[in-house]
């Protein structure tokens, strides 16, 4: 999309109306909450949110709800399947003349635990069926709601409460699963990564997706002060460092073709990002684990070497 075709040129174009409201039980400085807030602004009032256990499961905590939208809270594995039911149910009722078309959209909202692990099958099914829906995964790279245990989104060398950093192991020994590519292999019409430090990019991606029928999938970096051991006030900074170090590439694939929507001109060294977080603290103190840090840097460099657009 050309810049002149978008309603979002600068941050000043961010819609004023809020759908995510204050008073949620989420931690101060939650990065994922910013992503959801912006996504709902872009999607608007006719959005039905189907969401699953995660910290965001607390966005409706009886008798309070922190989203103005209609919502359905479902078991962990089946957000996309529930979305299918909502879309199918409304469509057939419209088709049979039982109701007027409510022109609603359905957003599946999950953390990485559901997106990368337990809900991957139902997501695969929904994408494959070309369900017309949005999927937003806020990825805080672990099971944050249960106390920050390992998920398959956990990056290499991150300490979690089930991958401890010891003298012999630098936290998680496995690399982060590439969900973007897993999703893209299903050939959805639209898939993107987003980061809250680039809100205009985020809004534009939701805007672009809104013009496409079928599965529209988003992975948002979800900076998690509680789990990551970063300062709440530095959430957007940490997010920005993830982008500027190249650890969190901003990209989209329309019809399968991957385009990077922001390419950091000179990538900052990964240490700048890692050092802000206690989950990587063991890489620097009591003594530096140069090998692990270099491995992270190498993985980032090798990723960007393969990037042509």
């Amino acid at each position: 999309m050309q810049a002149d075709q978008t309603a979002f040129r600068t941050m000043k174009d961010t819609p004023a109306r809020e759908y995510l409201v204050s008073g949620s039980p989420l931690c101060p400085g939650c990065g994922g909450e910013i992503a959801l807030k912006l996504a709902l602004k872009a999607m608007g009032e006719r959005t039905i949110v189907a969401f699953v256990p995660s910290c965001f499961g607390l966005l409706t905590l009886y008798p309070y709800s922190s989203m103005k939208n209609s919502t359905l809270f479902t078991p962990f594995a089946c957000g996309p399947a529930a979305a299918q039911g909502i879309v199918d149910g409304i469509n057939i009722r419209v088709e049979k003349g039982e109701i007027k078309d409510p022109r609603s959209k359905v957003l599946v909202l999950t953390g990485d635990g559901a997106a990368y692990d337990i809900g991957l099958q139902s997501t695969s099914g929904a994408i494959h069926r070309r369900l017309d829906f949005y999927y937003l995964c806020y990825d805080n790279e672990a099971y944050g709601n249960t106390g920050f245990q390992f998920s398959s989104a956990t990056p290499f060398a991150s300490a979690t409460s089930t991958t401890h950093a010891t003298e012999s192991t630098p936290g998680n020994p496995l690399r982060k699963k590439d969900l973007f590519e897993v999703w893209r292999a299903h050939r959805p019409p639209y898939v993107a990564t987003v980061a809250v430090s680039r809100p205009v990019d985020l809004l534009r991606k939701f805007e672009k997706a809104s013009k496409i029928r079928g599965p529209k999938l988003f992975i948002a970096l979800g900076v998690c002060p509680t789990g990551w051991g970063s300062e709440p006030r530095e959430t957007v900074r940490v997010d920005r460092l993830a982008v500027e170090t190249g650890i969190w590439p901003l990209k989209e694939a329309v019809g399968g073709r991957v385009v990077h929507t922001y390419v950091p001109r000179r990538r900052a060294p990964v240490e700048e990002y890692l050092k802000k977080q206690k989950r990587f603290q063991h890489l620097f103190s009591p003594k530096e684990n140069r090998g692990a840090v270099q491995a992270i840097q190498n993985a980032v460099d090798s990723y960007w070497e393969g990037v042509s657009e």
Partner: peptide
Amino acid sequence: AAAGAASLT
């Protein structure tokens, strides 16, 4: 999951 959700519509 879909059956239950559709029923709510």
